[in-house]
Amino acid sequence: MDIVNQSRLWSRIKPAKPTRQQQEARIGLLFIAPWLIGFVLLKALPILAAFGLSLTDFKMLTPEATQFIGLENYVRLLRDPVAGANLFESIRYFLLTIPLQLVVALVLAAVFTSERLKNKHFSQTLIFMTSIIPATSVFFIFLGSLQYAERLILTPLNLPPIQGFDLFLPFMTLWSIGPGFLIMYSAMVSVPKEIYEAARVDGAGPFTRFVLITLPMISPAIFFTLVINLTGAFGGAVLLDRGYILNFSLSPMESYINETMFRETELGYASALAWVTFTVMMTLTILLFWSAKRWVYFPEEDDVNEI
C-alpha cells in the first residue's frame, strides 16, 4: 500500500514519461480534435448563446437596444396560443408519420428479403430514389400530379376533389422511407440463417418466425430508423437532407420559429421557442434511448452505447 501511495506522490511531483496508454489517448484525442472543436464552437456555444438570447428582447435590427428581461419570453410563450397549437401540431405530425414510415419500411424490407423477388437491386434503388429528390421538386411534383389525379380518376368517378395538403403529408412521409428501408433490409439479410432453420424444425410458421426472430434480431436497426424519423419530424435530417421549400415547412413549429425570426425579427422570442422545441426533442430522445435498454437487442452486454 505504502509503495503505491509513494509512487503516486512521486508522479505528482515529477511527471513521468507518458505511458503507452497515455500516448495512445493523446494521439486519439488529436484525431477527434476537429469534431470536438466544432462541437464547442458550432453546437455547444450557440446553444448556450441561444439560451442567453432567450432571456433578452434581442432584435436583429436594433442589437444595441437589447435588454435583459428574464423569463418574460417564456411567460409569453406559455400565453401564446399559436405556439402551443404549433407544438401540438408538430407532435401530432410525428405521431402520425413515424409509425407509418416505420411500418411501410419494415414490410417492404421483409418483402425484399424473399428469394422470389426479381430485379431486387433495381427496385431497391427505385424505392430509395424518392428519398433524395429535393424538397423543391417533391412539393411541386405532388401539386402537379394532384391535377392529373383529379382529371384521370376523381372526375370520371364523380369523387370530390382532394383537399390539398391532407394528402401531402402521408405522401411526403412515404417518399422518405429510403434510408430506414435500406437499413432494416440489410439488418434482416444479416440475421444468421441457422436461427430460422432451428425455429422451422421446431414448427414455427413464417409469421411466428418473423415476429419472434426477425423483429428482435433487427431491433437495433428499428431503433436507428426511429431515431432518423424522430429527428426528421422536428425538421432535422439525419442521413438525407432534402432541404426545404421557401415559406413552407412540414414541421409547424419550425415554420413558426422561422416566421418569428425573419418576419418579426424577434430573435429573443424565437430563441425561447427554439429552446422549448429543443427541450421537448431532447426529452423524447432520452426517453427513446432509455427505452432502448428494454427492447433493443445488443449482442454484447456493454455495448448499449454503441447502438
Binding site: G236, M281, M282
Partner: peptide, 24 residues
C-alpha cells in the same frame, strides 16, 4: 484509440445528430 471518457464523447456525438438546427 482508448481514450478516457470515450463513451461520453460518443454519446455526445449521437446527441449532436439529433439537435434541431433551429436552436443554433
Amino acid at each position: 484509440f482508448r481514450i478516457p471518457g470515450l463513451k461520453y464523447i460518443f454519446f455526445l456525438l449521437i446527441a449532436t445528430i439529433m439537435i434541431p438546427s433551429n436552436i443554433t
